[in-house]
Design a protein around this nucleic acid. Sequence first.
DNA 1: CAATGTTGACATGAACGGTTGTCAAAATGT
DNA 2: ACATTTTGACAACCGTTCATGTCAACATTG
Lengths: 231, 231
Amino acid sequence: MTRSKPPAPGRRFRGLDPQERQRQRREQLIAAGLNAFGGKGYHAVGVREICAEARLTERYFYESFANREDLFLAVYHHAIGTIRAAVMRALGQPPRDVQTMARAAVRAFLETLRDDPRLSRILLIDALTVSAEVSRQSQLATQSFADIVGSLILSLYPQLPKHGVDAQLVANGLVGSTVYLVMHWAFNGFKAPLETIVEHCVLFYDAAGTEAERRIGQVAAAGKPPPARRG
Amino acid sequence: MTRSKPPAPGRRFRGLDPQERQRQRREQLIAAGLNAFGGKGYHAVGVREICAEARLTERYFYESFANREDLFLAVYHHAIGTIRAAVMRALGQPPRDVQTMARAAVRAFLETLRDDPRLSRILLIDALTVSAEVSRQSQLATQSFADIVGSLILSLYPQLPKHGVDAQLVANGLVGSTVYLVMHWAFNGFKAPLETIVEHCVLFYDAAGTEAERRIGQVAAAGKPPPARRG
DNA sequence: CAATGTTGACATGAACGGTTGTCAAAATGT
DNA sequence: ACATTTTGACAACCGTTCATGTCAACATTG
């Protein structure tokens, strides 16, 4: 019973290794999922439609993903990665003052969402209603952003807790104002100029800083610029 | 062809008129929908489950609603009405200064959501993913709240537009911070004391006011209290 | 009690999505 | 050229949900 030709479990096809081909298929499916989910919403898209968009058949769907929710999770993490990369790139510029860095981070966030509106739907809307597990992960991801902001606030104004102000709640509120402004901006087709939204987002960060100083009783923290006059 | 006994299309049952019985059934279904949708989410609840919860059969469901989305819309408007009533009642107290009224409104908002956590899910999460029509109506409802805040800001600081600040965007950001703080609060089981959340919500309103004054260049608006020190 | 409106339990059928399986054709290495 | 893997198109199965329909039992009025 010796097999003269042992089966070659993995042949090169189209000049690509099996793993590489599977990786490509997986990416195609994620791209198709981003498109479909981001366009019509998770609950309005079926596996068949995703496969058609990816130019693949159902078999390859279940080769890479256990089910539709599993694909969404991958799409979601892809989207998170896109945002994170953009923000990190903005923050990786030569060190500057806090206000400038915050502005750059917010601008990168808004630019990324405007340049790919599908991300907004994935990250801000669908992530909450796909399943309990996904919404939990979404909460954690957003919370990690908010935690960074909270730590920053606390490092700038360490005495805040002594004055009854919870830096983490302030951070959550700031994230909320930013997210909501973005949602509104996106919902109206990104008609308003990006810089207008950026300025109004950072307005809240400035305002929170000033309010923190008021609560603490000190006059000014390091690096706070004078009121922005434009003209 | 005279009918000796013309059919009586509407007999009293249980001492109730047909319309009254139907009205009760409709209310039962809305209550059941609030319970089911608010507990497990719109997309995880079917018509059968709602009917079982309402102690009614499918026939009576389609007697009052065209489909599941139609019921959700009714539940949504019911929830909005509950919130609106609570806020209006809080604002209907003897006239006071702006800060006190804002605090009372926010407190009423938070109390209502805490006392009925199902409202949070209906209003803040599911409303965005049921259908395009529902999310449109949800946007309009939230916007009407934000518009009130925006008008208030503009009346307090009429010169804001001259300084490059859009009162409507500020209002949206404030609504966003409040909504997000509530969402976070609700998601963690309302563990934090209500007053803590209230105070941090109004913190943003205070902060926005101070920031508006900074941008305008004036020193203080009417009625702004000194920084809140707590003992 | 009889007549009839009313109700509840359940059946039914269409439609849909998820998931697995079949099969022939295309592509590839030897 | 051949054997074999890979691929695509599609069928099929299963379960679910929506939406409507059927029918007997019940309640109420006269």
